[in-house]
Amino acid sequence: MAGEWGPDGADCAVAVTFDHLGEAAEIQLGSIAPDAPVGHHHSVTRELPALLAMLDEHSYSATFFVEAWNFRNYPDAVRAIAEAGHEVGWHGWLHEPWHRSSAAEIAESLRLSLDVFGELGVRPRGARPPAGLLGPHSVDVLAEHGFDYVSIAGTAFGTTLGSAARLPLLPYPWHAVDGAYYVPGFTRLRQPPGEEPVGPAGLLEGYAAIVDDTAAAGGCVGLIFHVPWQDSPDRVAAIGTLVDRLAADERVWLARADEIADWVRDHPADFPETAHTDRAPAW
């Protein structure tokens, strides 16, 4: 990896990103019925406003990867994210897991998504396939539908270019997901794996180690938070603490995901084309 990132030549690039909104993932998982009443999900009415206020206080423009279903069901929330100066990325239509989806299912997800992008007038540049894995599907599928970078799980601390489409692939390791610190069952994703949640202090410690490794490798990394899981003031405050620490770290270029992708694209000699292979979490 190149050792200089951003206008000040930092050792690494870091993006703080958010996933999920509304009932989309719950409908996909079957925990609520597809025809259940929607429109008042706590992630929209409570967590999202608190996060937007916190990010404004800490002067950071983040990336929110949102299921496109929300463009139709929570258009005001999607607009609020964009109007606050944050990037809106794509996280599937209804959080369908790409690595377990057929080509026809992926095509339908993209068709529905493109329709609502036009309706709302907000067009995501970046894609994060739900569950972070492409499975048998190519990065080229996303390029053909107008996306110009992809956020992928399983490739730690580097940034490569996709094969035919040459889309920047912005990585995150599994232990850079907040559930590894907060949610029972996900804690085995930590390094080293754990059995119990460790809370915001443990998350900050784990993310600090990830940033150290990323800086040593001269790469980039996405740090992931799920909007519905930021359901207490201490969790929201921890993100503010993280942003402040990253902004003050001379090794780090703290940027949005699209800004990092543009840097990769504008410096092709530093990022040779490399094929990507999904790597599922070690459960």
Rank of each mutant, 00 (worst) to 15 (best):
T159H: 11
E108K: 04
A103V: 05
F117V: 08
A238E: 07
Y74W: 09
P129S: 12
A131C: 09
G202E: 12
A261W: 09
T214Q: 06
V252G: 10
H276R: 06
P129E: 14
P272L: 09
R188V: 13
A10K: 11
S61W: 00
R128A: 15
A25L: 14
D231W: 00
A25F: 09
V14A: 10
P193V: 12
G154E: 06
Q230E: 14
F64L: 02
R256P: 07
D76H: 04
V183Y: 04
W69Y: 13
I81M: 08
S43I: 04
P200S: 13
V264I: 06
L110F: 07
D178A: 07
H145Y: 02
R265K: 10
A127G: 13
H86Y: 02
A131N: 15
L203N: 06
A103M: 01
D19R: 05
G154W: 00
P184L: 03
A80D: 05
A215H: 10
E259S: 05
Y182H: 14
A275D: 13
V252P: 09
A68H: 01
S138I: 06
N70A: 14
P268I: 06
D19V: 12
A68V: 02
D148R: 12
L254M: 07
A238V: 03
P184C: 02
V38K: 07
C12R: 11
A156K: 06
P193C: 13
A208K: 04
R123D: 10
G132N: 10
R72V: 07
P97H: 02
R256S: 15
V38N: 01
P130H: 12
E205S: 15
D234K: 03
T274S: 13
D244G: 14
T214W: 04
W174A: 14
A24T: 15
V14Q: 12
V16M: 11
A107H: 07
D76M: 03
Y207L: 15
H40F: 04
D19P: 10
G240M: 05
A24R: 10
L189R: 10
S102H: 02
S101P: 00
P192Y: 04
E196G: 00
A216M: 12
H99M: 02
D266Q: 14
C12I: 10
Q28H: 13
D115S: 06
A143L: 07
